[in-house]
C-alpha cells in the first residue's frame, strides 16, 4: 500500500494536489527489481508508468544510445500514456531498484476524471519526452570494429 505522504515527497509529484495524490496512491504499487533485471523492453506494449524511488536504471534506446537515471523521482514508461502505447526504450536495472508502479489504464481513467490533473501530468510527460527525444531520435552511430 502506497501512502499519499510517500508520493508527496517524490519530486515528480511535488506540485500535485492532495486529492490527486490520494487518487494516485490508490492505484500505485511498490515494486522491487534486482540488479540486471529488465523492467520493460523497447517495442513492448506499455502498460505502466514507473517512478524511481531507489537505485539506478539504464534506459537503452534501439539506436544504441543510453541514459542512466539515478535520482529519486525520475519517471520511466511515459509511453503508457502516449500513443502508440509501446515502450521506446529498454529499462535495465544497474542496481537493486525500488519503484512506484502506476497502471497506464488507471492513470488514463484519472486523467479523464480530472482535466486539470490531466493537464499537469501531460505537461510533465511532454517535458520527459522532449528530454529523451534527443536520445531516441539520434541516428545509430557505428564507431567500432565489433
Amino acid at each position: 500500500m502506497v501512502s499519499t505522504r510517500e508520493l508527496r515527497e517524490t519530486e515528480f509529484l511535488r506540485d500535485f494536489h492532495e486529492s490527486e495524490l490520494s487518487d494516485l496512491a490508490g492505484i500505485a504499487a511498490h515494486t522491487r527489481w534486482k540488479e540486471g533485471e529488465t523492467i520493460f523492453h523497447a517495442g513492448a506494449p506499455a502498460a505502466a508508468l514507473y517512478l524511481l524511488r531507489v537505485g539506478t536504471i539504464l534506459l537503452c534506446f534501439p539506436n544504441g544510445r543510453s541514459m542512466p537515471l539515478r535520482d529519486e523521482g525520475h519517471a520511466v514508461g511515459w509511453s503508457s500514456l502516449v500513443s502508440p502505447f509501446r515502450y521506446t526504450a529498454t529499462a535495465v536495472c544497474l542496481s537493486d531498484v525500488r519503484l512506484y508502479e502506476f497502471s497506464g489504464r488507471e492513470l488514463y481513467r484519472l486523467i479523464q476524471m480530472n482535466a486539470l490533473f490531466g493537464q499537469r501530468l501531460m505537461q510533465k510527460i511532454a517535458q520527459i519526452m522532449e528530454q529523451r527525444d534527443r536520445y531516441r531520435r539520434g541516428t545509430p552511430v557505428s564507431f567500432g570494429r565489433d
Binding site: 544504441g64 552511430v141 570494429r145 565489433d146
Partner: peptide, 9 residues
Amino acid sequence: RLGEPFSLA
C-alpha cells in the same frame, strides 16, 4: 573492440 564512444547496452 567496440571503439569509442561506445554503447552501454
